[in-house]
Every structure is written in structure tokens, then in C-alpha cells.
């Protein structure tokens, strides 16, 4: 059975291009992708994950508010019964050019399993997904 992913762009962010490409790449790689698109709230991600019985939630953020928008997502997933679901975040996650290791640590501390800097190839995420999902 195909692993299921929820894919979307969080918060008040409307960057659609990368989202369309990720959808294309993840689907090609053999995942079943529920793409909730841009301008999606934490609740939208969680509801989609529950409805599709997803294995992972992939959060994109390109506009810099990712830090505020992603806070508490892990806790909300736990409350919604999605304990242990894989949480990835990637994009331009913070405002300004900051040391990536600091940004990554901030996201891992928030409960994300992985965080990706700008310019990450979809293939990197696909390889990590396969590893984390035990392919």
C-alpha cells in the first residue's frame, strides 16, 4: 500500500509554485499525496491527516512567518490522535538570512522530525521519507 502524505503551505502564505512541483515530485516517487495547497491552517493539515490516515505531514513555508505558524503543531497533532506522525518543514522558514543550524534546531525543538533549508531538492525529502517510513 502507498504511504500517504499531507502536503501544504502553512499560514497566510500563498507561494504556490513550489507546492505544485512538490506534489508532482512526491506523486511520481510513489506516494499518495493529499495536497491542501496554500494558505492552510494547522487545523487544515490535521484534518486532512485524519481524513486520509496520513503517515506524514509536509509543511512548506516560503514567506518567513513559518516560525510563528508552526508553533504548537506537534502538540495539536498529539491532541488530535496523530501521535508519532512524521512532521517535516521546509522552505524559507524564518525572516532573514539566519544560521541554518539555529533554524533547524528551533524546528526540531518544536517537535518536527526534519527541517529543510531553502533550495532543497525534492529528491532529498523523498529519500528521507523512504528512510523514515522504512521502505
Amino acid at each position: 500500500m502507498k504511504n500517504k502524505l499531507v502536503l501544504g503551505v502553512i499560514g497566510a502564505d500563498c507561494h504556490a509554485v513550489g507546492n505544485k512541483i512538490l506534489y508532482h515530485a512526491f506523486t511520481e516517487a510513489g506516494f499518495q499525496v493529499e495536497n491542501i495547497g496554500v494558505l492552510s491552517s494547522q487545523e487544515d493539515f490535521i484534518n486532512a491527516a485524519i481524513e486520509t490516515n496520513a503517515d506524514a505531514i509536509i509543511v512548506s513555508s516560503l514567506y518567513g512567518h513559518g516560525e510563528i505558524d508552526c508553533r504548537g503543531l506537534r502538540e495539536k497533532c498529539d491532541e488530535a490522535g496523530l501521535k508519532g506522525i512524521l512532521l517535516y518543514a521546509g522552505g524559507n522558514l524564518v525572516v532573514g538570512k539566519q544560521e541554518w543550524s539555529d533554524v533547524e534546531k528551533r524546528f526540531l525543538d518544536m517537535g518536527f522530525n526534519r527541517a529543510y533549508p531553502p533550495g532543497t531538492s525534492p529528491q532529498t525529502t523523498i529519500n528521507d521519507l523512504k528512510k523514515d517510513l522504512g521502505w
Binding site: L62, G64, N92, V95, G96, K97, G119
Partner: peptide, 8 residues
């Protein structure tokens, strides 16, 4: 800084 987001 365009590739990484909002510039200094």
C-alpha cells in the same frame, strides 16, 4: 539574499 528570503 533573495534565495534565502527576506534580506538584511
Amino acid at each position: 539574499h533573495e534565495a534565502v528570503g527576506i534580506p538584511t
